[in-house]
Every structure is written in structure tokens, then in C-alpha cells.
Simulated assay, not measured.
Amino acid sequence: MLVAAIVIITLALVFYSIGVWAERIQRTLKWWHAAFFAGGLAADTTGTVLMSQIAASRRADGVAAGGLDQLMAITGLAAIILMAIHLVWAVIVLIRDRANEKAVFHRFSIVVWAIWLVPYVLGAAGAMIGGSAS
């Protein structure tokens, strides 16, 4: 289950990065960017659920959660919430179809993407040092 969670969360990184950076490069929000935001959100949510199940299984086996696990859980949840807000706001901007809103949306996207990287990097670091359920 761990390998599946890692692959899925890495897919989230790929999807979300493509959507955010393509939007930034093209300088205007398009529907296909929102589709990649949605793919990133879906993959990240799925991967996070799997990671949570792994952590719960470890706790059931008597393995205590460490500080890094708790930090990843908090930042991971915050990132998913921000990604969901980002996706909803992107859809609203696209429906309104105002050129100025679509042209500056990338500023919000970059911020959300950068915040999303925090739990991703924490998870990767935790896996490398072996002290985390990720």
C-alpha cells in the first residue's frame, strides 16, 4: 500500500505542476489547467487517504506517531483544502470569463502550489530518514 500511495502522491505532483506551470507560462487560465488542478487534487486526496490508513495501521501495531507524521498530517490537510479552494476559484473565474481575472490567476496558483510542496517534501524527507509513516 505504501508504494501505491507514493506513486499516487507523485502523480499529484505531476498533475498539479503541469496545471500550475502551464497556466503561468501561458499567462491565462484555461479549462484544461483546471482539469489538471482537479487531477492533482484527486490524486493527492487518494494518496493522503492511503497514507492515513498506513499511519493508522502502524498505530494499531503500537508504533507511535512522530512529530514529522503529525506535521505532515496538518500540512497535508491544509494543502488539500487549499487545492480544493484553488480548483473552485479556478472554475468560478473560468465561468465568469473575465480576461483580467484569468490573466492574474496564476499568482494564486503559484502560492497554492508552493504551499502544497511543503507536505510533499516533508513526506519525501520522512521516507528518506525512515522516521515517518510516509
Rank of each mutant, 00 (worst) to 15 (best):
I80R: 03
V111K: 11
A64N: 12
F105W: 08
M72I: 15
V121T: 12
V91A: 12
A35K: 04
A38E: 12
A65D: 11
A38K: 04
A22E: 15
S109W: 04
S109F: 02
L87E: 00
L87S: 05
V112E: 03
E101V: 08
V104T: 11
I80S: 06
L82F: 01
I110N: 00
M128G: 14
L77M: 12
G19W: 07
S17F: 00
V63N: 06
I18F: 06
L41Y: 01
G76Y: 02
A125F: 14
A60P: 03
R59P: 06
F15L: 02
A35Y: 04
I6Q: 13
G62D: 05
R58Q: 13
G66H: 07
L13H: 12
V91M: 00
I9Q: 15
I74T: 07
W113T: 02
G76A: 01
A99Q: 13
L82E: 01
A73V: 09
D97P: 05
T48Q: 02
A79S: 15
R59Q: 12
V104H: 07
I25S: 00
L11M: 00
A12K: 04
V93E: 05
W32L: 05
A64T: 14
W31M: 03
S134I: 08
A125K: 09
L50C: 07
L41P: 01
V104I: 15
L11I: 09
A73I: 07
D69K: 03
L68R: 06
E23W: 04
A133T: 13
G66R: 13
S52G: 15
M51T: 13
A35F: 00
D61I: 08
S17G: 07
W32G: 01
R27M: 02
P119C: 10
I74N: 07
G62P: 06
L71I: 09
A125T: 15
L71S: 03
S52V: 11
A43K: 04
Q26H: 15
S17M: 03
Y120T: 10
S109Q: 00
G126C: 07
W89L: 10
A133W: 05
